[in-house]
Design a protein around this nucleic acid. Structure first.
Lengths: 140, 140
DNA sequence: CTAAATGCTCAAGCGACTAGAGGATCAAGT
DNA sequence: ACTTGATCCTCTAGTCGCTTGAGCATTTAG
């Protein structure tokens, strides 16, 4: 299972073929090895990396943040302070995202539950994300 | 505190002035009332709505998904099945996002903790989001 | 009553893809 | 061996969701 094609990687990860090439262009993926006929080939590590990128993007992380997280992973022996400050920053961001998603989840769930017993009484989706969590996020 | 300017709304929500106008253009915000001199004015409801949009975008929801969630909120007396199916869809998505964020959080946390006792031993950020949760997400 | 701040519109730019044209190469069946 | 369809390549252009800037009007603070 060594050195698979870009199409196989696309199937394995759910990332479209042109997007994989794009990630290579912008340096999120290493420049791929090529066959004699100039086709890209990939190994398991790149597939994992790609899956990570996909999920992280899906979760709303900017490409730059992903680049930093990947760098942490690429150079596990970097200085403590550096890793620590970058990681802590993302940790705070992740915690905030989880808090907001949990609040949103509760509200959408309530709407679903209400829906089963007739009609939706009130929808507070806006309030739950809009105001409730505003205090977590003063200066951005 | 009735009818504030676009700049005040921008300050209150952290959404930039041109972005607010953009949201009006694409229909996420209602067309704003204007003063005699053609300036937009906003009320509290729009500010909440805007905060919701901002947080939801931040969490990686597509504009179309946000539009649907806002519609649920706008028309709380729609048919049960409709609300239910839309909400359930988003609920599943939200649950997945929470699961992935929680996994990522644990790994980044571990890196921070390791960092305090010397150097970062291993970084498994990629594995944690890349493979661990792949099974939750076969067909997208 | 000015001068800085804020607002308006419109047009262009940017980040992160996405789609399409045009052409080479591979893999499978006959 | 040959063809035909899938997959690959590069390159250009388009889309989405903003962001920036030009040029001009209005408001507000000193």
């Amino acid at each position: 299972m060594r050195a698979v094609s870009i199409g196989a990687v696309a199937k394995a990860t759910g990332v479209k073929v042109p997007t994989i090439r794009y990630y290579e262009d912008v340096g999120l993926l290493p420049v791929a090895d090529r066959t004699d006929s100039n086709r890209r080939t990939y190994d398991a590590a790149t597939i994992s990396r790609l899956r990570f990128i996909r999920h992280a993007r899906d979760l709303g992380f900017a490409v730059e943040a992903i680049r930093q997280l990947l760098d942490l992973s690429d150079q596990p022996d970097r200085s403590c302070q550096e890793v620590d400050s970058i990681a802590r920053l993302h940790l705070a961001d992740i915690d905030e995202k989880i808090a907001r998603l949990t609040a949103l989840r509760a509200e959408v769930k309530r709407m679903v539950d209400d829906g089963e017993h007739g009609r939706v009484a009130e929808c507070r989706v806006i309030e739950v994300l809009g105001d409730h969590t505003a205090c977590l996020h003063e200066a951005h």
